[in-house]
Amino acid sequence: MKKVTVSICTGTTCYLMGAAHLLCIDEVLDPYVRDHVEARGAHCLGLCHNEANGRAPFVKVNDRVIADANLTLVLDAVREILEEEN
């Protein structure tokens, strides 16, 4: 199965607005999901420059952009993608 990529933007804006806390996502993934997820901090994704994109912090789950991201939103997206692919 292809891994789901979670890129947590760690540009200064996203980091300030909560990305710092999202970086511990590994700890909340359940063991089954963890093997299928690759989570990492990413350099600024550039999404904060346009207010139309929504609020920071931004997380990309594969190609999906999540604005005002929190762990629940990110985990939901991961689960959805895993279900779609299987």
Binding site: T10, G11, T12, T13, Y15, L16, H43, C44
Partner: peptide, 17 residues
């Protein structure tokens, strides 16, 4: 640190760069 973060963002400085 929150205020410092806000100042850096306001100035457009990306610490990672």
């Amino acid at each position: 640190f929150e205020e410092l973060g806000a100042i850096l963002v306001g100035a457009g400085i990306d610490v990672l760069e």
